[in-house]
Design a protein around this nucleic acid. Structure first.
Lengths: 341, 341
DNA sequence: TTCGATTTCGGAAACGTTTCCCGTCATAAT
DNA sequence: ATTATGACGGGAAACGTTTCCGAAATCGAA
């Protein structure tokens, strides 16, 4: 590769027969420059293919025009939508985004915050999975604006960050739906309670009383866990007539296994998941789910962050909540049965 | 937020009673420093929570320790795996990755390359969708090491970049499989020919003769396209006995619609897709597919790039090819029928 | 002790910008 | 013509590092 020396602002200045200050002015149209000098300089800039050195700029203006995006795992179903949205928003403001996967590991989330400092990024969008007090602390002392994408975590009132999440517990929505279509023996299928605690809490709170035999805690959020849940419920003498699955993968697993077992969905058992990913539309029956608005949440989190970064004076911290949307599909359609017509 | 002034290397030096050069030496263990001064300095560094300013470093050493990853669309099925792999590799070498979505738009891919220059990134991993000559040109003149993730594009022999892709046309693999299980009337279902040309070429080349009625070009790569393809094939007086789908989504759509139509898979028609994404395992029947090794390809592309970046002397450009793997599932299992036992 | 060799360390230049401050020049008002 | 008033442009400092180079300190040997 040709070791072509980078052209600097000084080269441009020399070539255009002006001072470097003038070139800078032309580039940033900061005024104090006549139209024709500016035109000439810009002309030379184009000819020489000059591109200002970001490091030098950053060093001088003390901003990197970069924000970090810390998510549990980009491979996870909902995350790409979020990442996409954040990048789009950043791009519009001429910011770059640098990715950090925290692996959904609490310790790594902390480490991440430390990493952030090294990055000298102007702001951070973080989607926490775990949420120990220490993390809150580090956010408060991050020294840069932080925007939190929050799904169901309970956040301390004085977290120094914008927070965007959902207006209503997505789990609640599922439960209400299931109850509303007349199901009475509703089961819960999900990951261990301590993983996404809130979603299980929504289950408990929506019921007068929880029948422990209708609760299945699997190992993770996978398809296989869903199948195991199905097996478990099938083994019951008294099967549930509806299942609230912690996420779509689990819901899909359940439906999949039920079909093998000859359990009819939704006639015998209704199923509803969370995430509203595409997969729910490719199964048969298609599976009801609630959209957690990943793209919208991601976009807004980024917007808020950028606004804060660019604002001269301190802003109030915002908490914005989107309305989760329930999408009813075949798996939880109300059976035609009785008193309906 | 406390406008705590950033602590600089000079503060540390003063505090430790040494020169800034010494602090720098302690930090980068570049030698020329006694063990005990080093210890003392490091001690002070820790106490003051000093973090070197990346911009200043970059400016001085003329490297940003950042690489860019340009992909068509992070939301696309296979991309997250790639992005993940690239980030992991980068992290191990203490590099950051900044994301750029090109939208799979040819014009944007070019624009991206221009964007790269502004970024002052040390290298680029790019996965092109379109591949006009101009892109090759820009890669050759990017001025930084480039690593391309290539799926089936025909690349000019003297592209100045490392290239990692697949050893065998993934489409060929599908066709061979379908032929090998004894299917004779094999159909192709996919996106318009000009979109992923190579995959269609594999179809043509594997057949003595193409029956045009067995080729269905849809609009895109979606589930819906798959369903439409299924409708089309069903309408034929003489149905195919196997279908090669351009990707898994299409394959899933086909299987989905066939089930509604009462066409049995694989008994009546075998189906095989490409990508090997999880979705193929949640349908019933589960769908055969060929893995295009996203994670491995991504990781290696990154490794090669980083090696090149860090190498003092110029390296030969490498072309590495992974072996795509065919995963046979229910949708293309050989029917039990005749001469088999 | 003295001297040369070898460590160890500090000063200062350089990286490429932005921006402050000041001089110059044109314009208009007197 | 003279001068006040801006507009315009240039020089130079500053941002926070790394690293070259030379000075000081230490050490071993004579």
């Amino acid at each position: 590769m040709v070791n072509r020396k980078r052209v600097t602002i000084e080269d441009v200045a020399k070539q255009a027969g002006v001072g470097i200050a003038t070139v800078s002015r032309a580039l940033n149209n900061s005024g104090g420059i006549s139209a024709k000098t500016k035109a000439r300089v810009l002309q030379v800039v184009a000819e020489m293919g000059f591109v200002p050195n970001t490091s030098a700029q950053s060093l001088k203006i003390r901003q990197t025009r970069q924000i970090a995006l810390a998510v549990p795992d980009i491979r996870n179903a909902i995350i790409p939508d979020i990442a996409w949205a954040v990048e789009q928003a950043a791009k519009q403001h001429d910011y770059r985004v640098v990715q950090i996967n925290t692996l959904g590991n609490a310790r790594l989330e902390l480490e991440t915050l430390r990493e952030i400092k090294k990055l000298h990024v102007d702001g951070l969008v973080i989607m926490p999975l775990a949420y120990p007090k220490t993390l809150e602390n580090m956010i408060n002392h991050a020294g840069i604006p932080v925007s939190v994408i929050n799904y169901g975590k309970t956040l301390s009132r004085d977290l120094k960050a914008d927070i965007v999440g959902l207006a209503r517990q997505e789990g609640k929505l599922v439960m209400e739906h299931l109850l509303q279509i007349g199901r009475t023996r509703i089961a819960y299928a999900g990951a261990p309670k301590d993983k996404i605690e809130e979603r299980y809490r929504a289950y408990e709170q929506s019921l007068r009383q929880v029948d422990p035999s209708l609760v299945y805690f699997g190992e993770d959020f996978s398809f296989e866990t869903g199948r195991q849940a199905a097996n478990y419920f099938y083994s019951l003498k008294n099967m549930p007539d509806a299942i609230y699955a912690v996420n779509d993968m689990v819901a899909i697993g359940i439906v999949n296994r039920f079909k093998e077992l000859g359990v009819r969905v939704p006639e015998d058992v209704a199923v509803c998941g969370i995430d509203n990913n595409l997969w729910t539309t490719v199964t048969s029956p298609q599976i009801s789910s609630v959209s957690i608005m990943g793209a919208e949440v991601g976009r807004l989190a980024a917007e808020l962050l950028l606004k804060r970064i660019q604002s001269p004076e301190p802003l109030e911290y915002e908490r914005v909540e989107f309305e989760p949307r329930l999408i009813v599909r075949e798996s939880s359609v109300k059976p035609y049965s009785r008193s309906d017509s």
